[in-house]
Amino acid sequence: MAELSAFNFRPGSSVLHGLDVRFKLIFLVLISFTSLKAYTVALSVLTLVLVTALMHSGLSLKSILKTFRYVVVLLAFIFVTRALSTPGSVVVEFKAISITREGIYYGVMICWRLVIVILTGLSFVLTTRPSEIKAAVEWALNPFPFIPAKRIATMMSLMVRFLPVIIDQAKETADAQRARGIENRKNPVYRLGKLGIPLMRRTFERADKLAVAMEARCYSENRTDPVLSSGIMDWIALCGVVCLCLVIISA
């Protein structure tokens, strides 16, 4: 088994662990929505709040940065396309390519917003049990008719649970291939083919094992969910987040 990745639930007793899941779900929607409207100052405040919350709930700064290792390529790509494609006052010009001041600004803003969304999602997944996520999604979908709320909720919590499995399996497969000297092969198509297919087959086999385990435990859709209860702390936190979001939108 590889090391515990940051996408797993970690037991703990921080404020975030204690909050009601439904409120956390509302916070998730609110913050990801407000990040659309946020600029430099608001983004710095949000980053500060989220990093503090994450560190308070038991994740070290080092492992937060380590999680972002996977996203860096994507962030760089978004930044470069923005920097090149936005018209405005030119900073650097090289043949047909010109980098504009506005482009750099929007690139940074968009990458920063993505980081905020990831941090929010991370703090949600980190402090919430999959069974609680399921219960909250079910609660949110219940008012809508014709939607199989229970099944969708199960699938959602399974999906969140599979993310660390996939990362784990990818690491394991890559290690196994490095041990067999895959680095000597320079052809990228060959390497991706030899990595991709076993990786997919193994994750599906693990999913298969999970299905067998669920069946062996007599899984059915009619099961008792964890009881959701909200306290005074939840309402205080809700007020805090709503105020923060209103300030950011109106600013």
Binding site: L28, V29, S32, I78, R113, G121, F124, M156
Partner: peptide, 25 residues
Amino acid sequence: ASVGVYLLAGALGLPVFAGGVGGIG
């Protein structure tokens, strides 16, 4: 069903979409 769950997770604000921002927006 699979894609629907993926899109719903994105709409709720989990960081599952490529680039830019998440959420219903």
